[in-house]
Design a protein around this nucleic acid. Structure first.
Lengths: 221, 221
DNA sequence: CGCGTCATTGATGTGCATCAAGTGGTGTGG
DNA sequence: CCACACCACTTGATGCACATCAATGACGCG
């Protein structure tokens, strides 16, 4: 949260963020079709969001961790258009959106903050579109790992070690690959000495190699 | 724009959208890296937005037409992260973002409107992710055509006839396909009697068939 | 301990990319 | 007004990356 607020403003923001909700692993915070009332700031735990087409296919649209906000999809039609599923026991701040709007009319930095959160999500999705539209399997998985570990590092975790909270199938859905391809690509990285993988525990041995894979022969012609 | 505004409010909004800018076909409205100052509402013409990875690949992230807003990507870092290119001579409203923020603090419906525009973009991108992550070439192109014609219809154009403003290559970039695949898929639709194609002129002969392709055998089990 | 879930690995198939040649429309300059 | 060049597009032949199908292995939980 941004700085430079009066204590009065802080109190009012605290109030908006006061209510908490626990979400058990495997259960949904909200579902496609449900009425939209609030945004949710993740305090602890790990979520995936996914959309479904009518014929049953579904697509993971993102993985979210502590400090990130979910529910933005619901604003436009007053109903959610995706599911948010906890991948481990989690706790969120429930932030009623009408209260956010009210308060952000009075507190400039909050208004700015809300706008940035939404813009950041749009930019993130641009990156995913680039990944899905133009990268090969190895590049996708390398980009995925680098992104995860970077976000974890920003939260004080290791730069080189991580625990995947999602299955191979969920990774595959996010990356537009089948789970077997995800598994094979992990195995290839292991053969190449780039990572160690033991189940969902991943240790990155060579970050530069991963970067090279994402950005193959970035030629300076 | 939403209704129910006082004439004073309307005047102030008019002022924010007062400045116009013409953009010649093939030129950019803004570019990746440029400072972000304004959102742009398209008055006439047709745009594409595209992002690029460092190694030169690029990905069309969307096609925008009259009434749609571009530039949202710039809010988060005060710099644009994609290019907006006019695919035909165009005119836009330049809407300085600090003015939008100022005014939307005072005019509720404007605030709500801005939030919905951003949320709509997020939801749209979810749909593109589903398309890129899980659909086959025919499904992608069918979804693309249906989406385009639906948006054109909402603007008073035909439900069944459209002129593509973009090349096969740009369509391919948007859909995660090569231009040859786009061309072949068009040819297949023509063989099947679903559309007529003459260059960039497309006439949809069987909308239901296109829907069936997008949503193959949606079984009601 | 036994069962269900998740993951790995191999064999085979296929959808789309790639490479390549040719067509047609458009615009330009002689 | 025509000849030429250029670009977008089409179509065919071939190859490859990833999907699919199938079998087996490793955890974790009741």
């Amino acid at each position: 949260m941004p700085m430079g607020l009066s204590s009065d403003e802080l109190d009012r923001i605290d109030e908006v963020v006061a209510t908490r909700r626990k979400v058990k692993r495997g259960t949904t915070l909200f579902r496609n079709g449900e009425k939209f009332t609030s945004l949710y700031a993740i305090r602890t735990g790990f979520f995936k969001t996914c959309v479904a087409s009518e014929d049953g296919r579904d697509q993971v649209t993102g993985f979210q961790m502590a400090g990130e906000v979910i529910g933005l999809d619901g604003i436009v039609n007053d109903h959610h258009t995706c599911d948010a599923v906890a991948l481990e026991d989690a706790e969120v701040c429930v932030m009623p959106f009408d209260r956010i709007e009210e308060l952000s009319r009075e507190v400039n930095v909050l208004q700015r903050h809300v706008h940035k959160i939404m813009s950041r999500e749009i930019v993130r999705e641009h990156g995913v579109m680039l990944l899905l539209g133009s990268m090969r399997a190895e590049e996708r998985l390398a980009a995925f790992l680098l992104n995860l570990v970077q976000r974890l590092h920003a939260r004080g975790f290791s730069q080189s070690e991580l625990v995947l909270r999602m299955t191979r199938e969920e990774i595959g859905s996010y990356l537009g690959l089948k789970l077997e391809t995800v598994s094979r690509t992990f195995s290839k990285f292991v053969e190449d000495g780039i990572v160690e993988v033991k189940q969902r525990h991943v240790r990155i041995l060579n970050t530069d190699a991963l970067r090279d894979i994402v950005n193959p022969k970035a030629c300076t012609e």
